[in-house]
Design a protein around this nucleic acid. Structure first.
Length: 723
DNA sequence: GTAGGGTTAG
């Protein structure tokens, strides 16, 4: 509309006026006016500034008429005559073409950008920054094709920069296939310097899956072997998922061209200890010293000690610890903690606590790991340790696992106290020693409160420990906590249910125990043997023989599924085998505890014939499973009864006398043990009296075998003829 | 370079 007048004014126009005019046209979306003005400016050789360029582009790209690129192309071409486009201009162009990733008809714009290497490069980098790796890659390939056509000279720094940007976006893109990454590498062999290779590895390794990183590594080994420095090896060695065997071969591989450092060895040793490969860890320890004259540091020794711990070679762990002490002088908290773990495993609590003192003296601050072990060493001091930890740790927040350890320690203390009430375990309380009458469970309840106040979410471990404390306090709390968990996002698991059952059971709350058992089944949690055993305890304490018998049969029906042979996984060396609890339906085979509890529960019943048959059946089962009376099956005349409860021993004797094939002139020896506790009747004395009373059998205690009862052949014969 | 739970008992 205003175009005509502008043309007539042409001779007298100034650059400033042109610019004003331009702004005016832009404001009114008059694109013809804009182009006309630009052309006039060219004709008059007014130098357009970068600002002009930007202003026009900005206006064009935000114009509503964005379906057509021709205007943009025109503006661009008009401007480019006098101004060199910069990255920012390219960016505006790409802004305008934001839908480019889904359309091919932006090719006219792309041909603009491809006109010079400069803008082409800029465009690729912009795409990279926007995460549009597919488009960036396409342009990069075009770019390379063109460059390789006429220019074989060295790659300039802009191109290297572009390449790295591209690489960066591709390795971070979730949907970028490894083939693409490799092809990207293939095209850039000239670009990659040793520093690049390292940078790429360090960038890729933590982000990518192990498979990807490894493929990448193999490629680099093939094409860039000379560029693989020690740091490159480290980048891949420190990948989260590097397998031990690969780490080993990487170590061997790098040894051919460079010298590993202590960090190299530490990493491989770390991986080895995780797989409890003690021999390998020790071999590496030796190798790094002898072959490379490297000095093991605290980390190195920690891995060695931990390898021993993992393999349950606790004495050896302590030996290594002492070696470390010798060689290093000053140790660190990891080493001390690991050594304390070994002491606890060896039941050398005193030594563990001694180490704790020692580290404090050395001004090595114990942390939550250390105190967790300390709590195991001295459960009755758990609260004291917790207190210490709060006082010394800088962030003042205690991890849940540490609280849980304290609660576990409290549970253990409560159990201990219940067992030996006269032995005072007073030190549970640190703040006021006057308060010795506070029951342990109360501390547990308080601690649970504290956990909640700290905004920590108590977990199964927490409740399990708290409920175990309630075994020795108000059992109602167990039910309350089960309910609490059910109402929360953390429903009770098998162990929590079991603890609750045990808690009720100890108090003779058989109905609640049975109810909990039913409840866990309802909630699709398969009770395991430990849970069943806890229910049997409840039935025994509550004197419920009928229900015990019923449950026993229920258990037998389920438990016949697959007898499981427990295998010890270690074959070599002297690692102490680990005691395993197996869970699930497959392992509902009654064990000696089941037998003890069921018989204990039935023993309360009268001596009816039913009862005799029931107990006899249980005994037959137990003997067949070799849970009891080993030796009976081998027709030995020595039978071990030691360690049995009175009722089980009684049932066993009854069974024995009924089924024992008496060989002429052979006496029968019952091994009972002497019985250590002076204040209690020993099994030996109890059985001796009972045998006489029940069967009129006289037995003697040989002078040199005080832990046995011998029934003479004559007595046995006499009894046989009587019945 | 670190972490974990349970049942019986004259």
């Amino acid at each position: 509309m205003a175009s005509e007048t502008t043309l007539t004014d042409l001779p007298s126009i100034t650059p400033e006026q042109c610019d004003d005019q331009l702004s005016d046209y832009i404001r009114h979306n008059d694109w013809e006016g804009v182009l006309l003005t630009l052309r006039i400016m060219q004709q008059l050789e007014f130098v357009q500034t970068e600002q002009t360029f930007l202003k026009c582009l900005q206006a064009t790209s935000s114009s509503t008429n964005s379906t057509d690129n021709s205007l943009l192309v025109e503006v661009w071409n008009a401007l480019k005559q006098t101004v060199e486009p910069t990255r920012m201009h390219v960016e505006y162009i790409l802004d305008h073409c934001s839908s480019m990733s889904s359309r091919d008809d932006d090719d006219d714009v792309w041909s603009l950008l491809r006109q010079s290497s400069q803008t082409h490069n800029d465009a690729i980098q912009v795409l990279c920054r926007r995460g549009q790796w597919k488009w960036a890659l396409r342009e990069w390939k075009l770019f390379q094709q063109r460059e390789s056509g006429h220019n074989a000279s060295a790659i300039d720094s802009t191109q290297a920069e572009t390449y790295r940007a591209l690489w960066n976006v591709c390795i971070h893109a979730k949907d970028c296939p490894i083939e693409t990454l490799l092809s990207l590498l293939q095209g850039a062999e000239a670009i990659l310097t040793a520093a690049d290779v390292l940078e790429l590895l360090q960038m890729a390794a933590p982000q990518q899956s192990w498979r990807t990183v490894w493929t990448f590594w193999e490629f680099l080994r093939q094409h860039h072997a000379a560029k693989l420095t020690l740091d490159c090896y480290h980048a891949i060695l420190f990948h989260r998922h590097v397998p031990l065997t690969t780490a080993q071969s990487l170590l061997r591989d790098l040894q051919r061209t460079q010298s590993p450092t202590i960090e190299t060895y530490n990493r491989v040793m770390y991986l080895a200890q995780r797989e409890r490969n003690v021999p390998l860890v020790l071999q590496l320890l030796q190798e790094l010293q002898q072959k490379y004259n490297l000095a093991p540091n605290a980390v190195t020794y920690t891995h060695v000690v931990r390898a021993c711990l993992q393999d349950r070679q606790w004495k050896r762990a302590l030996v290594v610890f002492e070696v470390a002490q010798d060689k290093l002088g000053r140790l660190d908290v990891y080493l001390y903690t690991a050594a304390m773990e070994a002491c606890v495993a060896l039941k050398q609590s005193g030594r563990a606590l001694q180490l704790l003192d020692e580290m404090k003296q050395q001004k090595i601050v114990p942390n939550s790991f250390t105190y967790r072990v300390a709590m195991q060493a001295a459960p009755h001091r758990a609260l004291e340790f917790l207190h210490e930890l709060k006082a010394t740790s800088d962030d003042a927040s205690i991890p849940l696992i540490t609280y849980n350890a304290a609660l576990q320690a409290l549970a253990q203390t409560a159990k201990q106290q219940a067992k030996e009430p006269h032995v005072a375990t007073t030190t549970t309380n640190t703040t006021n020693s006057a308060n010795e009458t506070t029951p342990v469970w109360q501390y547990a309840v308080n601690l649970l409160e504290e956990i909640k106040q700290q905004n920590l979410q108590p977990d199964g471990f927490t409740y399990n420990a708290v409920i175990m404390c309630c075994c020795h306090g108000p059992w109602e709390l167990a039910l309350q906590y089960i309910q609490e968990m059910q109402d929360s996002s953390q429903p009770p698991n098998r162990l929590v249910y079991t603890a609750a059952i045990a808690s009720c059971g100890k108090h003779g709350q058989a109905d609640h125990a049975l109810h909990l058992l039913a409840q866990m089944k309802r909630n699709k949690i398969q009770p395991d043997l430990v849970a069943y055993n806890a229910v049997f305890t409840a039935l025994r304490v509550a004197h419920r023989p009928e229900q015990a018998w019923q449950l026993w049969n229920e258990l037998l029906e389920q438990g016949t599924a697959q007898p499981k042979t427990l295998m010890l996984t270690r074959t070599e060396e002297a690692g102490v085998p680990k005691r395993q609890y197996s869970s699930g339906k497959a392992n509902l085979l009654p064990d000696i505890i089941t037998i003890t509890e069921v018989i204990g529960a039935l023993a309360g019943a009268d001596d009816s014939e039913d009862y005799q048959t029931q107990v006899d059946g249980i005994l037959a089962y137990a003997v067949a499973r070799k849970l009891l009376l080993n030796g009976f099956l081998d027709s030995s005349n020595e039978i071990n009864l030691s360690g049995l409860t009175f009722s089980v021993a009684r049932a066993a004797c009854r069974y024995l006398l009924k089924h024992y094939e008496h060989v002429d002139n052979q006496e029968l020896t019952l091994i009972t043990g002497v019985g250590k506790q002076s204040n209690k009747t020993s099994l030996r004395d109890y059985l001796q009296a009972w045998l006489e009373q029940e069967f009129g059998l006289k037995s003697s205690i040989p002078r040199f075998a005080q832990g046995t009862l011998v029934i003479s052949s004559e007595s046995l014969l006499r009894r046989a003829s009587r019945s």
